[in-house]
Computed example of a mutant assay.
Amino acid sequence: MTDLTVIDAMRDDLLAGNQTRLAAPFLARGLRPPVVRWNPAPDELPTQQLPFLLRHWMALRDRHGTVRPEHIDPLELRPALGYILLLDVLEDGADYRYRLYGSEVARIASFDMTGKRTSEMATGSLASDFYLAIYRAMLRRPEPVYSWHEMPMEITINSWDRIVLPLWDAEGRIARIITCNVPGLPVPVPPKALAP
């Protein structure tokens, strides 16, 4: 069960530039601490898909710097489409529902979260708490955020690189989140430009 008190403590640390509480559950499992960076430049990002999605999102921004969900055209996302996740913000950000869970992410992870909540993540609370903390931080700091994290060896994928981007509704609230998740190598090294 999701403990929003713990997640909000992680969120507050992220907003303050401190990742100690966010890293603690990873370190407790013998994993390296996750990497989280706000406003990365596209050329700082690994893989082809992450910088593609960030550039695309940046090109769609209106005069207020926002992107609306209806401006996202799936056909224009083809280079990253299988790695795209689209989430609806639920209950003022207490949870998020996967409207779209990329086919490649589902294939590689061996589960599909389409229609499910982040709190129901098949890999358990290590991943879901991490994702929820980042999403909840984005509601307060509506900017692109990059993350890298390891998962325990019993999970099919050892690490993920992600770019997470906000989408606003007509009332100026973040109503959806679009993210691109790309699996890392078995023992990846976070990109130098983004290392802690």
Score class of each variant (00 low, 15 high):
1 M>R: 12
2 T>I: 14
3 D>R: 12
4 L>K: 12
6 V>K: 14
7 I>T: 07
8 D>Y: 09
10 M>T: 06
11 R>K: 14
13 D>R: 10
14 L>K: 04
17 G>P: 03
19 Q>G: 13
19 Q>Y: 11
21 R>Y: 07
22 L>F: 04
22 L>M: 08
23 A>I: 11
24 A>E: 09
25 P>Q: 10
26 F>M: 09
26 F>N: 06
26 F>D: 05
27 L>C: 08
27 L>P: 07
29 R>W: 00
31 L>C: 00
33 P>E: 03
33 P>R: 00
35 V>S: 10
37 R>Y: 02
37 R>D: 03
38 W>F: 11
39 N>P: 00
40 P>V: 06
42 P>V: 04
44 E>A: 11
46 P>T: 01
47 T>P: 03
49 Q>W: 01
50 L>F: 06
53 L>E: 00
54 L>D: 01
56 H>A: 14
56 H>R: 15
56 H>K: 15
59 A>Q: 15
61 R>E: 10
61 R>V: 02
65 G>M: 07
66 T>C: 01
67 V>F: 08
67 V>D: 03
68 R>I: 06
69 P>V: 03
70 E>M: 07
74 P>K: 10
79 P>G: 07
79 P>T: 12
79 P>D: 02
80 A>Q: 08
80 A>H: 12
82 G>W: 09
84 I>C: 14
88 D>K: 03
89 V>D: 01
91 E>P: 01
91 E>K: 14
92 D>A: 14
92 D>K: 14
94 A>E: 11
95 D>Y: 06
96 Y>F: 15
96 Y>G: 04
97 R>V: 02
97 R>M: 05
98 Y>T: 00
99 R>A: 09
100 L>Y: 06
103 S>G: 09
105 V>N: 13
106 A>S: 12
108 I>K: 13
112 D>G: 10
113 M>S: 12
113 M>V: 01
115 G>Q: 05
117 R>Y: 13
122 A>W: 03
122 A>K: 11
123 T>A: 11
123 T>K: 11
126 L>D: 06
128 S>G: 03
130 F>Q: 03
133 A>V: 06
134 I>T: 07
134 I>K: 11
135 Y>W: 05
137 A>R: 11
138 M>G: 11
140 R>Y: 08
142 P>C: 06
143 E>H: 13
145 V>N: 05
145 V>C: 13
147 S>M: 04
147 S>Q: 10
148 W>V: 05
149 H>F: 12
149 H>D: 07
150 E>I: 00
151 M>K: 07
151 M>T: 04
158 N>W: 08
159 S>C: 13
159 S>T: 12
159 S>V: 11
161 D>L: 06
162 R>G: 02
164 V>G: 01
164 V>C: 08
169 D>H: 02
170 A>W: 08
171 E>V: 07
171 E>Q: 15
172 G>F: 13
174 I>P: 00
174 I>R: 00
175 A>S: 15
175 A>G: 05
175 A>W: 00
176 R>D: 01
177 I>V: 15
179 T>N: 12
181 N>G: 09
182 V>H: 00
182 V>S: 06
183 P>I: 08
185 L>M: 13
185 L>N: 14
188 P>K: 12
188 P>S: 15
189 V>L: 13
189 V>D: 10
191 P>E: 08
191 P>F: 05
192 K>M: 09
193 A>N: 02
195 A>I: 08
195 A>K: 14
